[in-house]
Amino acid sequence: MSTLIKVTFSATSGEEVSGKAQIDRAQGIVTLPARFSISIDRARNAGERFEIVAHDNGYKYPLVHQDADRYALEAASRRRDGFWHQAWRAITEPHKDQRQQYGRFAHTLSAAAMIGLAGYLKSMPAWSLHAAWELFCFFLCGAVLFVVGAVLSKGD
């Protein structure tokens, strides 16, 4: 088990600080580094509301102040995003890796269109305007999906 845990500080001012903090897992005590304390003091002095959350094993734990820079994990209030919430966010707000996977999906569809084109070309009995139009559609689909896949695979 790691002795470090990811912690996020968020304030109503819009300030957000993320980083690692030391955790004593036996007692459930997190010791925040100094830069968190600075943000907390600044929010307190400005009268802003704020929350400090620890992230562990997919769960979010609210941190409750104990003394100085020591905070307790509130295990009873831990929460985790449900499957449907995660699925919705994967579709509407994909992360970098997810966007790259979507790019690969577009390239797979592009390859399928090219294979479809070749299959159509070999199986058509004779050339006609209709056949040429459908071959053109296959090619256009492949080209468009290739470009879309390239944009999604940009990686930043």
Partner: peptide, 30 residues
């Protein structure tokens, strides 16, 4: 008809993927 359906489907998939990509970049800034 098949060709038009193929183009419409491709357009819909492309538009959706590009929209999701732009949304993801805007939200996560990663």
């Amino acid at each position: 008809m098949f060709g038009v359906a193929l183009l419409v489907l491709t357009g819909a998939i492309s538009a959706f993927l590009l929209w999701a990509d732009r949304n993801g970049r805007r939200v996560h800034k990663d």
